[in-house]
């Protein structure tokens, strides 16, 4: 039997990651619960005045999406690192560049995509104008892809470390900032009725750049972590 081609291999890996996730539904539910709870913190902390909340809503929603992405990205490679399957992946004939895309894809499907799809509910709770909800979902779809790609760089670099949790936020948060800026700017533009298209286009460009470059960094990071 010949080894599967790299694309086929990638699809199989993706399916494996998704099956693993579906078998532990709480892992999928946790980021959503986190999102809901942190949304509930803001009216308590900032006061429940609807107008005020509506003004902050784009930034609040984007920051929470960013944080839940950050918290979940720590675990992307960890269990596979601990049971040794990551080492097998490095030895496999398929290029690591392609196989890490499967990990990132699974992470994005489980956190980014789901969060983007449920975000309209939280947007309404925070009194975000209905006209901006579409832009919010679109910006989260594009932006969370970049967040997953960048977050996985941090995960790959810290996977071998015992106390990686706090460190990964130090490494990754500065890299998240441009995404936050453009993501929330797109939603704010939609709220005021200005064109959100340019911001979304820049998010899309960041996504293209991140897809092209970050698997290289992730692959290098994984090799370093396995060697260490």
């Amino acid at each position: 039997m010949s080894p599967p081609g790299s694309l086929q291999f990638c699809v199989r890996l993706l399916r494996r990651q998704l099956v693993l996730a579906v078998r532990r539904p709480i892992e999928i539910g946790n980021p959503l619960l986190f999102f809901a709870m942190v949304v509930a913190l803001f009216p308590l902390g900032l006061g429940p005045a609807p107008d005020q909340l509506a003004g902050f809503a784009p930034g609040i929603l984007w920051i929470i999406a960013l944080l839940s992405n950050l918290l979940t990205s720590d675990a992307v490679f960890r269990s596979d690192f601990e049971d040794g399957s990551l080492e097998q992946l490095l030895l496999a004939p398929q290029p690591l560049f392609i196989s890490v895309l499967a990990y990132i894809g699974a992470h994005w499907l489980i956190t980014g995509l789901l969060l983007a799809l449920v975000s309209p509910v939280f947007a309404l709770m925070l009194n975000l104008p209905g006209s901006a909800v579409g832009t919010l979902v679109l910006s989260l779809l594009l932006g969370s892809g970049v967040l997953s790609l960048v977050g996985c760089i941090g995960a790959a670099l810290t996977v071998g470390l015992k106390r990686g949790g706090m460190l990964i936020s130090l490494l990754v948060l500065p890299l998240y900032m441009p995404v936050l800026i453009f993501g929330s700017a797109a939603v704010k533009a939609a709220v005021t009725g200005a064109a959100a298209g340019p911001y979304l286009a820049i998010l899309g460009a960041m996504l293209c750049l991140a897809i092209a470059l970050s698997p290289l960094a992730i692959a290098a990071g994984l090799r370093i972590s396995i060697d260490a």
Binding site: L209, A220, A228
Partner: peptide
């Protein structure tokens, strides 16, 4: 912080180098 977190200093150097290069892409974007 990343350099200090590694016990293996050779790996620390490489990991930091990757991080530096990723950050360099980030600077003009920011």
């Amino acid at each position: 912080a990343l350099y200090e977190a590694f016990d293996n200093k050779e790996a620390a150097g490489k990991a930091c180098a990757v991080l530096c290069l990723v950050g360099m892409v980030n600077i003009p974007i920011i």
